[in-house]
Design a protein around this nucleic acid. Sequence first.
DNA 1: CCTTGTATATTCTAGCTTGTATAATTTCTG
DNA 2: CAGAAATTATACAAGCTAGAATATACAAGG
Lengths: 179, 179
Amino acid sequence: MTVRLVILGLLHKRPLYGYEIKQIIEEHMGDWTSIAFGSIYFALDKLADEKFIDKVDVEQEGKRPSRSVYQISDTGREEFLRLLRESWQQVERQYFSIDICLFFLEALPLDEVKNFLRLRQKTLQTMLGYIQSHRDEQMAIPEVPRLALAIFDHTLVHTQAELNWVTDLLQKMESGEYP
Amino acid sequence: MTVRLVILGLLHKRPLYGYEIKQIIEEHMGDWTSIAFGSIYFALDKLADEKFIDKVDVEQEGKRPSRSVYQISDTGREEFLRLLRESWQQVERQYFSIDICLFFLEALPLDEVKNFLRLRQKTLQTMLGYIQSHRDEQMAIPEVPRLALAIFDHTLVHTQAELNWVTDLLQKMESGEYP
DNA sequence: CCTTGTATATTCTAGCTTGTATAATTTCTG
DNA sequence: CAGAAATTATACAAGCTAGAATATACAAGG
């Protein structure tokens, strides 16, 4: 679902070829999604089958492998808007593997669990710093749209929430509130 | 990954058959994961191939379809601990589809976006209330382990963080800070 | 009494995603 | 200048999931 939305979204602006799409995703959206080559080419084929995009051109730069450039069609634009609206509307339930772990906690010695939590704390603190500095960098560039900051903030608030929760849990474990 | 961990974790306590596993997951872990029948039977087959579990019995109650009961093996217990440690240790990056949407925001009229956000606010408030009352219910039952509350808190802090962020974003959009 | 819905229990299939391998060339780096 | 990394794409296996299909049991309701 994400794959199609992203591809259609990027083709919405201008025609692109597969490898280029992968690069754009990594460069500009790498913090918020990750899509494998296989998925991109698979999706491009599928979208072309469905007439949401057309192969417009096969460029060739020197003797490099030739590039198949795709262009979005009118029905493709409609599909893009449909997908975008659908994604906006859904509030997805996030599942955390750590919740599952907590269910099976008794299988591990308490000390080990505490160590894991301390490690998690450190990781989260590092991540927080990384996002923050990344955000500040972006903020300094005037042509970055203000909305980009909202996306950073999103990651930020969740990471902070996670850190708070871990800290609280660890504190409760150390005070002996949990057996 | 989750599927295997959960199945091994449940079989850790006692032998079970596929349908039973599905029921336990829905009843006791329904708020934190969701695993389809197909995934369970697929994983059971795979785990049996790998000798992490053994088919011990084919019960039949009346003329109902027969049940294949699986039991965890010694290597299965090891694998369970390995998976559990692995899951504990990883701090997974969560991807939110709304972040992707924000990238393509300009494709939708601003009013529509604001409406989506208001709707999202309401949904999150409802979710928050639901989790809270669920948590209170559990708290009232003395035999529910205190840790279960930690899991509720986890969901709670993230939902609250999400709500705060949406509220902030909406406020900024309404004050005209974002075009 | 016949139908309908729901619970029990499993199997199958189609579709998506990832990862890895392969290929051929080109550009960067020490 | 050698070797590493990047460029572009294809192909295939393997894993995972959702959803439908299948078949029986049983309670409720008209």
